[in-house]
Simulated scan of single mutants.
Amino acid sequence: MEQARVEYFRGKDFVSFIKNHPECKEILEEDKDLDTEDIANVLLEKNLLVRCDRVTKTLRPGKKKLSTWPVHLEIFRVSLFAVDWMIDLSLKMMRFFPWTFEKRHPLWQTLSSFFWPVLTRSICLFPVYPHRCKLIVLYSCAGILLMILSLLFVRAVAFGGMWILLGKRVWFFPNILAEEATLKELFRFWPKKDEEEPPKWRSRLFYTVVAVVVVMLLRRHAPDEAARARYQ
Rank of each mutant, 00 (worst) to 15 (best):
L149T: 04
G143D: 01
T182C: 04
L91Y: 14
L183K: 08
S122R: 13
S112A: 15
M93L: 12
F101K: 10
L91P: 04
L166S: 01
E102Q: 15
G143R: 00
V170Q: 01
V170G: 00
M147P: 02
H105R: 15
K103Q: 14
C124V: 10
N175R: 02
F126W: 09
S140I: 04
L151H: 04
D84P: 00
L152S: 05
E179F: 15
E185I: 04
D88N: 12
M162D: 12
F96A: 06
R121T: 08
F115W: 09
L125C: 03
F101R: 06
F153M: 03
F101N: 08
F115G: 05
R95P: 06
L145F: 07
P98R: 02
L146F: 10
T100S: 03
L183C: 11
Y129K: 05
V128E: 04
P98A: 08
W116Q: 09
P130C: 05
E179C: 14
G160V: 01
L146C: 06
Y129W: 13
G167L: 02
R155K: 06
F159W: 06
I136C: 03
L119C: 07
C124T: 11
L138D: 11
D88L: 11
F187K: 05
I164M: 03
G161R: 00
R121D: 05
V157A: 02
V83F: 14
F114S: 07
R132V: 11
I176D: 05
L166E: 01
I148C: 05
W108K: 12
C133L: 15
W99H: 13
V170C: 02
I136G: 01
V137S: 09
N175W: 13
L177I: 02
L138A: 06
L166H: 02
G167R: 02
P106F: 12
M147F: 04
H131K: 11
